[in-house]
Design a protein around this nucleic acid. Structure first.
Length: 353
DNA sequence: CGCCTTTGACCAGCGC
DNA sequence: GCGCTGGTCAAAGGCG
């Protein structure tokens, strides 16, 4: 099914073009934009400019939020359709295979294929998570268990299975699995046995530079660091203060649709059904950086790490900030923005500035 | 000395 | 019942 043709995820940069205040000559505006011509602009005009810019950005932000909402709705609708379709298809397959002389193996395979498709559509929800396929836990239990999957782009040369999410983890095992040559590392929250959250980290089969971190359960304690979480996305991903520590911060910030291989792009897969935006399916990645929170800090936080924080206003504000930060650092976005702006100012397509 | 990682051994579920 | 596999345990060693 062609999702991209059904859901318009494109970012229309011209949906709300910059409005030039009537009182300001066009040339002056250009000067402000390109050369930051503060010296040539009266303070009063500058203030009104800033106010105008603030209003414009606010409106733009609102518009983006609306677009995101629409996208989520579209996604949910599509997901429901696909789920319905797969249910029908699954029933049909079972009927035909039982009627025919197909082997048990082929039955299993088709069923597994259907499940695989469903998983990809449903964002690999906890009940169908591949990692739970061989779990020892009773079914009811791992339905309850909140499972979140986070994709983190790292340096290809970086062989450590460390996903920095701000929480402190204790590694208790490592195993090479059958379906992936890369070892899988098992972590427990350092607050165990009080906190029973577990984390599995393994490199993606498709892209060795992507770490797949699967979180099971919810932290019953506060985030070790809020401020560090905020700092983390603006600093280098590799500057761990303690080379052996798994402490760090993961900024799960979907914002730019450009895949920046040089940076540690982070793809958030919210596998909870209530989380309507399954970012990872579109491979929307962030070009923001991550870094350690440093040391064994245990400061209180409400951001990052735990997937139960994502609906909080602070986290959303954090997301917005990181989106803005990421976009402004993205050369392709800057180019697109410049083209959009120059297209507005120069209707004759004179984009040589 | 305490905390951490490493790693081989062990356990349990599942399919044949 | 046996083998395969994923998950966990725990002893040993490293590091600050």
């Amino acid at each position: 099914m062609e999702f991209t043709s059904l859901v318009d995820t494109s970012l229309d940069l011209n949906f709300r073009p910059l409005r030039v205040p009537d009182g300001i000559p066009k040339q002056e505006v250009e000067s402000n934009f390109i050369g930051l011509g503060i010296d040539h602009t009266p303070v009063k005009d500058e203030a009104s400019d800033l106010l105008e810019e603030l209003n414009r950005v606010s409106a733009e932000n609102k518009k983006l939020t609306e677009m995101l909402t629409v996208m989520c709705q579209n996604y949910n609708a599509l997901r429901n359709q696909v789920t319905e379709y797969m249910n029908k298809h699954s029933t049909t397959t079972a009927t035909t295979t039982s009627a025919d002389d197909h082997s048990a193996g082929s039955k299993k395979r088709s069923k597994a294929e259907n499940n695989e498709i469903l998983k990809s559509v449903q964002g690999e929800s906890s009940s169908s998570d591949e990692d739970n396929s061989c779990t020892k836990k009773p079914r009811e239990e791992h339905i309850k268990t909140k499972t979140t999957r986070v994709y983190v782009r790292t340096e290809a040369s970086d062989t450590s299975l460390i996903v920095k999410d701000g929480y402190q983890w204790r590694k208790y095992g490592q195993k090479v699995t059958r379906d992936n040559p890369s070892p899988r590392a098992y972590f427990k929250c350092s607050f165990a046995p009080t906190c029973l959250v577990k984390k599995k980290v393994q490199r993606s089969v498709e892209d060795q530079s992507i770490l797949v971190a699967t979180y099971e359960g919810e932290h019953n304690h506060s985030h070790p660091s809020k401020t560090d979480a905020a700092n983390a996305v603006t600093t280098s991903p590799c500057n761990r203060l303690n080379g052996k520590s798994t402490l760090g911060v993961t900024a799960s910030v979907p914002c730019s649709n450009t895949l920046n291989s040089s940076g540690p792009n982070i793809i958030l897969d919210l596998t909870e059904p209530k989380n309507t935006l399954q970012i990872d399916e579109k491979k929307v990645t962030s070009s923001t950086s991550t870094s350690t929170a440093g040391g064994h800090n245990k400061r209180k936080s409400s951001l990052g790490g735990g997937d139960n924080h994502q609906n909080r206003p602070e986290f959303q504000h954090f997301l917005i900030e990181q989106m803005a930060s990421s976009l402004t650092k993205d050369p392709s976005f800057q180019a697109a923005l410049a083209a959009a702006i120059s297209g507005k100012f120069l209707p004759n397509n004179q984009t040589d500035k």
